[in-house]
Nucleic acid binder design. Structure first.
Lengths: 129, 129, 129, 129
DNA sequence: GTGGTCTAGACCACG
DNA sequence: GTGGTCTAGACCACC
């Protein structure tokens, strides 16, 4: 999988990295049980700091999307992905509310926004091939 | 309008404030041309520094959602809100893609997410009363 | 002469007013010796504060563009306009240098900027009719 | 590059700083991709508060003249300077109109003003050596 | 009284 | 060490 980072973005690099991995899983490019590159190799591949990769992996592990084994390395969670919990729904609402608010302010209609999101869904799903 | 801030949140206070104001505009609680509290009064009302309020106002002004009149104060943009530009669509895509990716990873179906967003739409629109 | 003010501009109203009057003189719409409206009538005409008009008039008088007579009122300087002094050239250089610098940064060629300024000259001179 | 500030000027310090940096870019003294001093070091070098430097940098970034990398520092925009857009032309017209009007009032001829600006052009371009 | 600017000093996220 | 954020307190221009 190709990782695209924008070093000038205001989004921290570790967060961009997390997002890219999640998109890989979502698209099917990364399958449960599949191995991810080691912290060292990934860091040198994309030219960023070891700590940054480490932080991304650690957070993904904490959320349950990957497993980190001392010697075996890093693999996409094979024992079932995290579910849609109440806590997650709350986080989702907090993330989406300001986005929806701005869209409404700019005069976007509900169907327009929903269509926009459908487009993103298709983009992600199509990226796995 | 009631402003709710979470001082412990990792979201900067000024950004929370921007979001609250945008939600107020989206819900209709704040109407175009309506006056917003002065920097000083809002800051003391919600117990934060006036510079923090100032930053939120300045950014909202830069994006075109409010007007700042030198000595009269701050009003909701009366001359038409910012539109849905290509730049905005790009920003929106960048914001929504990682959110959608995580939702897919967690096994959320497309209709489920769309329904969730419809709920948020209704919540915002209903908050204006 | 019609005065156009932008109350939301970051340029102070008194400065906008000064500029409008100078443009009137430059275009020939206001001729030397011609009377300007009284502070009171102008203020009420354009709906701004008395003090604001007063400040504009006072500064224009200090620079020598108008005369203020206690009872007779305000007239455009009949005894010769201020000249191009060294002090004025210095002010002009300070005003123009940052403008030219930005234009160069944006890749504007010298002839382009000069042509632009010629256009402004013609606009001002044409506005007197 | 040497930064010259006039702390007594009515032009805000942050704006003077922006202008000085733009002049540096225009003259070629600062080249695309070149690093600028950190907020802290520049502030202490020229004896002003770091927030003032920060404001100048932030505004230059918003206009696209520099890039701010989260932890690495600040560089002159390497990916192409902002262009001459319609919005910029409007700003330029607003800046130049009052200046031209005063010059005309003072009896400056068109060629005289154009020659003056050519002089400024040469001064800026010559300052890069 | 309003926002604009500047200073000073602090803590934090990031890499 | 870097910029980002927040606080606190001050002075000024404007109207």
């Amino acid at each position: 999988m190709i990782i695209k980072l924008d070093l000038q973005s205001e989004t921290p690099i570790y967060a961009q990295l997390m997002n890219q991995i999640l998109e890989g899983i979502a698209s099917g490019a990364l399958k449960p049980g599949e191995a991810l590159p080691s912290v060292r190799s990934l860091a040198s591949d994309i030219g960023i700091n070891l700590h940054t990769v480490n932080k991304a992996y650690t957070l993904l592990k904490q959320e349950g999307f990957i497993q980190i084994h001392r010697q075996k390395g890093v693999v996409v969670q094979p024992d079932g992905m995290p579910q849609v919990t109440e806590a997650y729904k709350n986080k989702l609402r907090e993330q989406l509310t300001p986005i929806a608010a701005e869209a409404i302010c700019r005069g976007m209609r509900e169907e327009e926004l929903l269509g926009f999101i459908q487009g993103i869904f298709n983009e992600i799903k199509g990226a796995g091939n």
